[in-house]
Every structure is written in structure tokens, then in C-alpha cells.
């Protein structure tokens, strides 16, 4: 696996279905009740995520593709595939901005 450097922001529009996404090794997280806390070791940032965010982060602990993520979210939260696709796109962009995730093919 060869993670993409976070010196450049990932263009989510170009994210291929086969590309795997995972948390970077610089991130630690734990569940606190229904929410999650992420600590970025390198930049010191602390990020709080909601229930859906925690579920995603837990999935991203191991490499996973965007379609796999979408299916997992659909199963867990019983929402439509279209809605999940749109929300997932936004959420991954946010995690990317926070330098929390990395990609590989």
C-alpha cells in the first residue's frame, strides 16, 4: 500500500471506486458514548464526530473503498443509497481536509 501524501488535498471527484481509504497512522480515536474523539498526533488537532462519523471512522480503521463504506452506512442507518452517496462525499472531503484519511489503489 502506498498512501497518497497529504501535502495535497484529494480531489474527491476523482476518487476511484477501487481506491481504498483508511485513517492515517497519525490518528487515534475512541468512542465516547455515541460520539467519537479523534486526536491527530502530528498537528495536535482534536476532532469530535457524531454517531455516523464514529461509525465511519471505525470502518476506516481498516482500508475500505467508498462503495464498501456506502453499503456499510446504508445497512447500519437504514437510509437511501442516494442520500448516503451525497453525505459520504461531503464527509470524506471533511476528513480529508482534517488530514485524517489517506488513499491507496
Amino acid at each position: 500500500m502506498s498512501p497518497v501524501s497529504h501535502n495535497r488535498k484529494k480531489d474527491m471527484e476523482t476518487l476511484l471506486d477501487a481506491e481504498q481509504i483508511r485513517l492515517t497512522s497519525q490518528v487515534r480515536f475512541r468512542a465516547v458514548g455515541e460520539e467519537g474523539v479523534l486526536v491527530h498526533l502530528e498537528n495536535g488537532r482534536v476532532i469530535v464526530v457524531n454517531e455516523v462519523g464514529l461509525f465511519l471512522v471505525q470502518q476506516l480503521a481498516s482500508p475500505v473503498t467508498r462503495p464498501e463504506l456506502a453499503r456499510a452506512v446504508t445497512r447500519e442507518f437504514a437510509v437511501s443509497a442516494d442520500r448516503v452517496q451525497a453525505d459520504l462525499q461531503l464527509y470524506l472531503e471533511e476528513l480529508d481536509r482534517e488530514q485524517v484519511i489517506e488513499y491507496s489503489t
Partner: peptide, 18 residues
């Protein structure tokens, strides 16, 4: 948000946080 909400929840639920 971490201090306002998360630490409060940690204490309310007696979660062994550290």
C-alpha cells in the same frame, strides 16, 4: 466541543478516559 461536551459525557458516564 471536546471539553464542553465530550469531557462532560466522560464524567457523567464514568468512562475511564485517561
Amino acid at each position: 466541543m471536546y471539553k464542553d461536551r465530550i469531557l462532560r459525557r466522560v464524567r457523567e458516564r464514568r468512562l475511564l478516559h485517561s
